[in-house]
Each structure stands twice: as C-alpha cells, then as structure tokens.
Nucleic acid binder design. Structure first.
Length: 735
DNA sequence: CGTAGTTTTGTTTTT
DNA sequence: CAAAACTACG
C-alpha cells in the first residue's frame, strides 16, 4: 500500500513520468493539485531528487499556500526545501539577490496599480501631455501589454508608427526613468526584469538552472509571453518541465495570457509527454454535462469531456426575474432557506457574477436577510485610504528614493503643505537633480516657498528620525511611532465623520498584521513585510474560520469549489459582456464562454443560474435577453419552472432549438429585437418643442440623438435642469 | 491653503 | 449612480 494507490491511471502516469517535458491537461476538478503534490513526493521519495532541486510555480498566493501545506503533509522531511511560490514571489526573490546587475538597488519597492497611475500623472506633467488627449489608464494599459510581450521602452519607440504611439513611447521612456529614480518596479517589471536578468547574465541563469532541475507550473494556460519565456529559460538546461493547465479555463487574455502557450506546448517541446485528466471528482454528471455542452461551442480548444462517477445528481436550476432587485432577493432568500432546512451551510454557498458592480444589490439583500457573507474583491483591505497612507509612511522609511509615497502623505494629516508648495519642491528637485525628499530636507534654500519651508523641513526631519531608529525599535515600534508622531489616529478620533471609527479599527488591524509578521518572520524586516503586502491579492485574504457565503466574480472563483453555486446576471450584455458581443473578433466571446465553463464547474451539487429582465447600469435601465450560454445547455438538464412566476420569457427560452442557437451568430443588432419594447420610428415631438415628463415636469427638448436601440433625448427641464433620457422609458408628452 | 459644491466620466475581468 | 476631478469661494 503506497500513497500512490489512491490515484487513477492517468494521474499515476502524470506523477511517475518525471523526466523531460510533460503536459498535463487537467480538466476542472480533476485533482491536479493532488497530482502535483504527489509528483513532488514521488520525485523526492522514489527518485531521490533533493527537495532543494524542485520548483513549483503558481499564480496566486492561495494556491501556493495550499500546495505548500499539502507538500509538507505528504513529504515530511525536507519539504520546506521545495521552492513553492507564485510567479511574482519567485521573481522578487531572485531580483532581491541580483537586480544590482541591472542598475537597481536590491531593496527596490514594488508599485501597485495606484502607484503606477500617480507616477503616470507625473509623467504627463513632465513631458507636457494633456490628459484629455491621452488617458493615464490607456497609456499604462499599452505599456503593460508591451511589458507582457517583453518589449522595452527603446524597442517600443522604434516600432511606434503613428503620432499617438510615439507619444506613448515617450511616456514609456519617462515612466521607466521615474521608476528607476524611485528604485521601484511595477507589477509587470517583476517578471520582465527577471527575464532580462537571465538573458543578460547567463552565469546567474546557470546558477538557477542547476538549482531548479525539476520545475512544475500550475495554471499554465494563464501564462503570458513574459512568463512563458521565464519558464523556458529556467527549464532550458535539464528540460524537466511539467506544466499543468486547462485550455478551457484560460480566462486572463485581457491580462496578456496567451492560450497558445498551452495549445502549442507539444510543438514547442516536441518530445513532450501528454496526459489528459478527464475524470472529475467534484461535480455531479448533470453539472458536467451542462459545462461540457457550453464549452463544446468553442473552436480554439483541445477536445476533451469531463465525466464523473458521482451520478447524475439534481437538475440545474434556472430562475427568471423582472428586475435585478428581485434576483438578489431570491438568491439571498434561497440560501437562507436552504441553510435553515439544514441542506447546506453558508460556507458551502457562493454567488458568482461577471462584474464587481453586481455585488452591491446582492450585498444589500444578504444584510437584510442576516446572512453572513464575505465579499471577495471590490475594496481590498490594503486599498483602503487609511491603510495606503500608513503603508506610504512605511514605504517611505524603507526606500529613501520613493518620492511618490512622500508626496502622498506630506500633507496627511494636514500640515499646511498644499499643492502649490509640493509643486515648487518638485520643480526644485527636478532642476537640481535631487529626489523629492532631498529637496524637502533642504526646503529652506528654495526661495519661493516662504512660510511652508519650515513645515516641510519639520516633516522631512520626522521621517529622517524614523529611518534612523527602525533598527532599534523594530516594525511594531515603527508603526506605533508613525501613528503617534503623525497624529493620524488622533485626527480621526477628533473627526466627526461616521466612518472614522472603522478606519481607526483598520489601522489597528494593520498593526496586528505587522506584529504577526514580525513574530513569524523575525529576520525579514520592513522590506519583507511590504513585499508580502504588495503581492497579496483579494482571494488570498478570505477568512474561512467563520461559516460565510461568498460573493465574488467568476474570475475570483477559479480554483475554488462549493456545494451550491449561484450564477447571477445571466443576460446577454452582462454575461457575455456587451463588449464581447459587439466585438467583431469572436475570440472575445470564446473567452467569455470559458468563463461560463469555469463558473458552472465550481458547483459540486447544486447550480442555479438567475436572470433579470432589466437592471440598472450606470444610471440607465437596461433590458437584456437571456444569456446565450444558458441556451447552449440542453433543456433536459435544467429545471426551468417556478410556480406562480410569470412565464413570458420562459417560453421564449424553451422554444429556441438548441442546435440553432449554438451555431448561429447573433449579432448585437438582432439582440434588440424581441426584447419586448420597440424603438419608436418617429417621435411625436422634436427639438425645440415643449414636453412634459411624469417626474420632472415641463421642459424644452434640446437635442435628439438617434441611437441603435432608441432615441436619446436631451431635455432642459424648467425645475431640474438638463436631463438625457431614452425615449422609450421617458414617455414624454408634447404640450 | 482648505473646503464644499459642482461637473465629468466611466465598467469587464486582476497577478 | 457613484467616484473622481475640477472650480470657486472663504
């Protein structure tokens, strides 16, 4: 009896094929983490590979943590020597040792998206770009995409063809310069710089080639070009590369993930050994059949079909509502009822949706029904203002070149140092080749500053003293000193804002985290703490000590499983998103379909899809047809009845032949048909007419725009002023 | 310099 | 409908 007896035939093959390139195509719920963990154990116990020579890379900290735990359990002695980490954590660890070879200090700071945006604002100022012509976000998006493709600022400049691209190239250059001046890396740099390091310093790479003789990569379908290249380099010498993934679960194309990395693995490594894991240990056959019949409509995929020996189970449920409000009400109610009946526990329930914006209504109803829940995503703990402020102080102390943090908190709490003064110091620093902080230290020599100079120097002095004392009083001492000397909490205590109390609590929560960290990692220090904070994601923070239902996007749910799953907002225009429908390229729609596949396969026993005929979006009411993905599920698998409910759309749903729907391409224009409300051919009023609205009273029509769906009417109301509304809902009457 | 009040703008998805 | 960005005033 060995630990490998519990594996099925394919799993065993995957575990025992240890040499050379291996591709494991692991369907949802097919036990891929189990396979990886057993493979690590097999390498160590049966093949005598030193744990030190094994590397396992994941995408999320949660996945890494889970694998770490299971490896520790299964392997026992030496397990801690196995390197299990995320892509980003792996690269940061490597860079902390060697990045000086690329001209950065090894105590570099990691910038999050917020920091990058602030930095880009500075870039716009420096090179004179009006943010009305070009948005920071757009430019950052282009730069990020370039970095994912390993295109640096110089190469980008060379290939920039039109004017806009040239401007972006200029931004990219300045942005990288500012990053370097601040000794900071953004998220994409972490991977990019590691690849650069390996390419420019073969001796460093060789060192890691020797170390990592056996490499395993989880969620391989989500790798982008930079990550692909990183893995290729790491594995190039011994070629013992085992990648695990599921092309049907590739849902991060928008972040640069290249599905071809997994589809073409066998071409890139022509001696690759491939195993398919198709037996699912998670869901009932009905749920799998539904998922299979949806994903079957995708073109770009490797053929496979999940099966289960768990039996067919219950039917999937489909529930329709007039409004998103009723939808949320039903879901909350249904969970509450099921828990009351003892059918499930809160922690076995999850509500999934396409966009974070949908969480609000659900949350409201969960509160109303007293259901304990956790919202994953939305505002991350570390994204709260007060936490970011505290972190800015910490980061400022940690990295003297990080001007961004200095600017963030120089007037938080209020010290009477306004924007004008900050601009003057920035200007002075720029002209004299100083960092912003250095300029602050010598503020008295900036003539135009006047009374503010004294205040600025006092601030600089405070930070200097803190920096000098970190070594003496440790992290806990530092954070308390910051709270004390800045008077941040004091200001909150005296404030009469209603969320002041929460914020103070959050700050003390951060103090707790710091104390915890210091106890667990006594040698890591401030940089270590900040690094950990920079690399955590939303999903990592889930506290599963309490039984709580989870609300999250489908993206966030990848890799998780629940007894009961609710998929909310199953509407064409919401899921699949409007953009993916309108887009010419059907690869967008295929990505959405994979998302649907991920959503459905999260469920073990019960799956409920809900649909709201109309919902509020961006202050406008939207009417949407039932999601095309639901129509791809054979109707025998779905229980589609709800006693006492209206059946109008039910019939519509059932009457559409399955085949026709899955093959037919429904163009967005066609979608507006059959929606129940038709656009009026002609309105009985025109520009300049006086009209009456039920709520706003009488006004003058300023403009009428002919949209695809409806006429967009602008009216200047006598009482309330200008309003833009759709003719079909506004029901305006000529007077 | 700080604020309150006003206008504008935006939505996928996130390591 | 919010949040963010702007504007005008004390």
């Amino acid at each position: 009896m060995s630990i490998y007896d519990s594996l099925n035939k394919e799993q065993k093959e995957a575990v025992m094929h240890t040499e050379g390139p291996v591709l494991i195509l692991a369907g949802a719920g097919s036990g891929k983490t189990r396979v990886l963990v057993h493979r690590i154990a097999y390498l160590i116990d049966e093949k005598g590979v030193p744990p030190y020579n094994i590397l396992a890379i994941t995408f999320t900290n949660k996945a890494a943590g889970e694998m770490r735990e299971r490896v520790d359990k299964l392997v026992g002695f030496g397990a801690d020597q196995v390197w299990v980490a995320t892509f980003h954590a792996t690269c940061v660890r490597i860079l902390r040792r060697h990045i000086d070879l690329l001209g950065y200090d090894t105590n570099f700071t990691i910038y999050d998206t917020d920091d990058s945006k602030s930095l880009m604002k500075q870039v716009f100022k420096n090179i004179g770009i009006d943010n009305k012509q070009l948005r920071e976000k757009t430019v950052l998006g282009v730069i990020s995409a370039a970095k994912d493709e390993l295109i640096d600022e110089n190469e980008f400049e060379k290939t920039a063809s039109d004017y806009v691209e040239q401007r972006i190239a200029a931004c990219y250059k300045e942005y990288q310069k500012l990053l370097r001046d601040s000794n900071a890396l953004d998220f994409d740099d972490i991977i990019f710089k590691t690849v650069t390091l390996f390419k420019t310093h073969p001796e460093v790479l060789d060192n890691y080639n020797e170390r990592f003789r056996y490499i395993m990569v989880d969620e391989y379908q989500d790798t982008n070009t930079a990550q692909f290249e990183l893995v290729r380099l790491l594995a190039q010498k011994y070629r013992n590369l085992c990648v695990v993934g599921d092309d049907d679960q590739s849902i991060y194309k928008f972040r640069g993930a290249n599905i071809r990395n997994i589809l073409d693995f066998e071409e890139n490594y022509d001696d690759a050994f491939t195993v398919k894991l198709e037996q699912n240990y998670r869901s009932t056959q009905n749920i799998l059949d539904a998922a299979n019949s949806v994903i079957r409509n995708n073109y770009a995929r490797k053929d496979k079909a999940l099966w289960s020996d768990r039996g067919s189970g219950k039917l999937l449920h489909f529930r329709q509502f007039d409004t998103a409000y009723e939808e949320a009400e039903y879901i909350a109610d249904d969970i509450a009822k099921a828990v009351k009946k003892g059918e499930t526990t809160y922690s076995e329930c999850a509500v999934l949706y396409r966009t974070n914006a949908q969480s609000r209504l659900l949350e409201e109803h969960f509160v109303k029904n007293g259901i304990p829940y956790n919202l994953v995503g939305g505002v991350n703990f570390y994204d709260r203002k007060e936490i970011k402020d505290m972190l800015a102080y910490l980061r400022m102390v940690d990295n003297a070149k990080d001007d961004l943090q200095v600017k963030r908190v120089i007037n938080v709490p209020k010290r009477g140092i306004g924007q004008t003064s900050v601009d003057k110091v920035t200007d002075y620093a720029y002209r004299n080749g100083l960092t912003f902080f250095e300029a602050c230290e010598t503020a008295d020599s900036i003539p135009t500053l006047g009374a503010a100079a004294k205040k600025i120097m006092a601030f600089a002095n405070m930070i200097r003293v803190m920096r000098a004392s970190v070594g003496d009083y440790g992290l806990n001492g530092l954070i308390n000193d910051i709270i004390d000397k800045t008077g941040y909490v004091k200001e909150l205590e005296e404030s009469d804002e209603d969320d002041a109390k929460d914020r103070i609590e959050n700050i003390y929560e951060l103090v707790n985290k710091i104390v915890d960290y210091e106890e667990n990692e006594p040698d890591a220090g401030l940089s270590g703490f900040l690094e950990e904070v920079a690399l955590v994601s939303d999903i990592d923070g889930i506290d599963d000590s309490m039984p709580r239902a989870l609300l999250m996007t489908i993206h966030a749910a990848k890799g998780l499983e629940f007894e009961r799953v609710y998929l909310a907002g199953c509407e064409d225009g919401v899921f699949p998103s409007y953009l993916s429908i309108a887009c010419e390229d059907d690869s967008e729609l295929e990505e959405e379909r994979r998302l649907a596949y991920v959503g459905i396969t999260r469920a073990k026993d019960e799956f409920t899809a809900t649909y709201a005929r109309c919902r509020m979006n961006r202050g406008e009411i939207q009417y949407n047809p039932v999601s095309r993905f639901l129509k791809e599920i054979p109707k025998e698998l779905i229980d589609n009845r709800l006693p006492g409910e209206r059946r109008q759309w039910t019939d519509d749903f059932a009457s559409i032949p399955q085949k026709e729907v899955s093959v037919a391409k429904v163009k967005p224009v066609a979608l507006t048909k059959g929606m129940g409300i038709k656009k009026a051919d002609k309105l009985d009023y025109t520009v300049g007419d006086r009209v009456r609205h039920v709520k706003y009273g009488v006004g003058t029509v300023l403009n009428i725009e002919d949209d695809v769906k409806d006429h967009k009417v602008t009216v200047e109301f006598d009482g309330t002023g200008k309003k833009i509304m759709y003719a079909m809902f506004a029901k305006l009457e000529k007077v």
